[in-house]
Amino acid sequence: MTGPHALPPYLLAFPGPLRDQLVAAVLRGEKVSTTGLLVEYEIEGEELPPVGERSALIDSAGREVAVLELTEVRVLPLGEVDLQHALDEGEGYSSVAEWRAGHEEFWHGAEMRAALGDPGFTVDDDTMIVAERFRVVERLPVAEV
């Protein structure tokens, strides 16, 4: 969505297989929530997105594939994530422990540590996270690259 009414990009993970998997889950209606680290917003100097904000979901090829609308934004300690949020991430988790293990693997990965500028970054129960819930407002036609 270029031009004066362009929507901000909505990025899940880093470009590659994981992003492709997550975008596909959103488009299938399986993924209706996601989790980020509050420190990411702080490092980027970004405000938290407001409920009602619309964004363009971006795939690994950089294409806008859908318009999303935020329906909930919560900031809470990692240790307080509940089962419903874990299930709504649409990644097949059946428990908070599974969800957390998957997210810790991502957050402790080299790409995330590099993005945060901290090669030893780790999370614990007190790490503040941003739990977002969204809905697909519109699927966009995607031109082949």
Rank of each mutant, 00 (worst) to 15 (best):
D88C: 03
L11W: 06
E91R: 00
G120W: 13
V130I: 01
F106W: 12
L78W: 14
L37S: 06
L87E: 07
A66Q: 05
V96M: 06
A25F: 02
G36I: 04
T71A: 13
V75I: 06
Q84S: 15
F121H: 04
E47Q: 08
T35V: 13
P141K: 06
I129G: 08
P8R: 02
R133H: 15
Q21K: 02
P8Y: 01
P50D: 08
L140K: 10
A13L: 03
V96C: 08
L27M: 12
E46S: 15
Y10P: 02
L76N: 10
T34A: 01
V32A: 09
V137C: 07
P49S: 07
G62V: 00
A115G: 12
D20K: 01
G92D: 02
A6D: 10
Q21L: 04
E44Y: 06
A110Y: 01
H85I: 13
G52Q: 08
V81E: 07
D118A: 14
Q21C: 03
Y10I: 01
G117V: 11
L27W: 14
V123C: 15
W107I: 10
E98F: 07
S60Q: 09
R74T: 09
E30M: 09
V23F: 10
A110C: 03
E69G: 03
G90N: 04
V130C: 02
